[in-house]
C-alpha cells in the first residue's frame, strides 16, 4: 500500500472527472473527514484516514482490500473504473440516463444501452462523456460512456447505441471473484 504518484493521481482523477466534472474536488476535500487514495497491488482504494491507519497494520501481502475500491491500473498504466466506485460517483453525476424496465436487464447483463431502452436522458450530455445509468426507481445501476450527445440522440433511431457499457451492478454477481 502506498500513496499514488503524480501521474497515477492524474490518471485516476482524470477518469473520475469525466463522470462528475469539477465535483472531484468534493471527493478529495471532504468535510466529514480526510479521505485519500491509496494503491495496493494495482488497485486504487478510496479510504478515510481513520481506516487507513488501521489498515497499515496488515502486511502488504495479506492485505486484500480496504475502503472503497475505485478501480485498477492496467499493465499499460491506464486506469479503469470499477462498479464499486459507483456509489461514490453517483451523487455528483453530471450526465444521467434513465432506463426503461425492459432495457434494465439487458444493461445489467453487460450490454450497451440502445436508444429504444432509454426513458430519459439529462440535457447537455456531450459525446464520449462519462454517464451514470439509473433505473426508473432512481437507483444507480452502472455507468458508461455516452456514444451520442443529447442532441444527436433525439434524432437517432431506436437501434442505435446511446451508451457504451463500462460497468454495471450485475458485475457483483458475474465477476464476483475478480472484483474484490
Amino acid at each position: 500500500m502506498r500513496p499514488l504518484t503524480d501521474d497515477e493521481t492524474k490518471a485516476v482523477l482524470g477518469k473520475v472527472d469525466k463522470f462528475i466534472g469539477s465535483s472531484v474536488k468534493l471527493l478529495v476535500d471532504r468535510e466529514d473527514g480526510t479521505y485519500c487514495f491509496r494503491i495496493q497491488k494495482d488497485r486504487v482504494f478510496y479510504i478515510s484516514e481513520k481506516v487507513l491507519k488501521v489498515a497499515c497494520n496488515v502486511p502488504r501481502a495479506q492485505l486484500l482490500m480496504m475502503g472503497v475500491c475505485f478501480g485498477k491500473f492496467t499493465k499499460t498504466g491506464k486506469f479503469r473504473l470499477q462498479v464499486t466506485a459507483l456509489d461514490q460517483i453517483a451523487p455528483y453525476a453530471k450526465a444521467k440516463i434513465w432506463l426503461k424496465p425492459s432495457a434494465e436487464q439487458q444493461f445489467l447483463y453487460g450490454h450497451n444501452v440502445l436508444k429504444g431502452g432509454v426513458s430519459r436522458l439529462s440535457e447537455n450530455v456531450e459525446k464520449y462523456q462519462g454517464i451514470i445509468v439509473y433505473n426508473m426507481n432512481d437507483v444507480p445501476i452502472g455507468f458508461g460512456v455516452a456514444a451520442k450527445s443529447t442532441q444527436e440522440c433525439r434524432n437517432a433511431d431506436p437501434m442505435t447505441i446511446v451508451v457504451f457499457h463500462q460497468a454495471d451492478v450485475g458485475e457483483y454477481l458475474r465477476c464476483e471473484d475478480s472484483l474484490l
Binding site: R2, P3, D6, L13, V24, V28, D29, C36, R38, L52
Partner: peptide, 22 residues
C-alpha cells in the same frame, strides 16, 4: 514513493494542485 501515513494534508494539497491542472 511518498510516505504512506506521513502528512495527509500535504497529500491533499498535492492532489488539489493536480485537480487545478486538470
Amino acid at each position: 514513493f511518498v510516505d504512506n501515513i506521513g502528512s495527509i494534508s500535504t497529500e491533499k494539497e498535492r492532489t488539489m494542485k493536480i485537480l487545478d491542472e486538470l
